[in-house]
């Protein structure tokens, strides 16, 4: 009886995740030469453990201010930490000069505009058509339409 209930709850949980799951893409400025990131690098970037691009320039983080489905899915899939824990790490890195204060924005249009105007910025959004000043990067060598793409 107990096992059945657990199975039912788990099924509902999986169903709810799949219903809400969205195809998320990682975006950077089109002048950034990066074309691919590993999921480990992506995690390290957003936890501020990786602070610079290969060119030596500081990475400018952009994150969602509000708890959207996109943010929840990204944190659960890639970072596997809560926003509170991640942001505590940001604060420690900011005060010792390791990173610039991340831009925490409320809307998709704000995020896209920020990435378009900051050469070394990185963000994640729901998959959509993008302006030419912004491009997506592959994740672990996979494009967002790949069945094995991690942020589906």
């Amino acid at each position: 009886m107990c096992t059945s209930i657990r199975l039912m709850i788990f099924s509902i949980f999986v169903l709810s995740i799949s219903l809400h799951a969205q195809n998320i893409v990682v975006i950077v400025n089109s002048e950034n030469p990066i074309v691919n990131l590993s999921s480990i690098d992506l995690k390290n970037i957003f936890t501020a453990d990786k602070a610079v691009w290969d060119e030596g320039n500081s990475i400018q983080l952009v994150d969602w201010k509000i708890a959207t489905n996109v943010r929840e899915q990204f944190y659960a899939t890639i970072l596997r930490k809560s926003p509170a824990i991640v942001r505590k790490g940001w604060v420690q890195k900011i005060v010792i000069g390791s990173i610039y204060p991340p831009a925490v924005l409320s809307s998709e249009s704000e995020i896209i505009h920020f990435v378009a105007t900051h050469r070394w910025a990185i963000a994640y959004i729901e998959k959509k058509e993008l302006p030419s000043t912004v491009k997506t990067v592959t994740l672990d060598g996979r494009m967002s339409n790949d069945p094995a793409y991690q942020l589906k």
């Binding site: 060119e55 030596g56 320039n57 500081s58 900011i94 005060v95 000069g97 610039y100």
Partner: peptide
């Protein structure tokens, strides 16, 4: 009150 000015040019900060 603490100020944290910083600047970056290429690989220098």
């Amino acid at each position: 009150f603490n100020l944290l000015p910083s600047t970056e040019f290429g690989r220098f900060k």
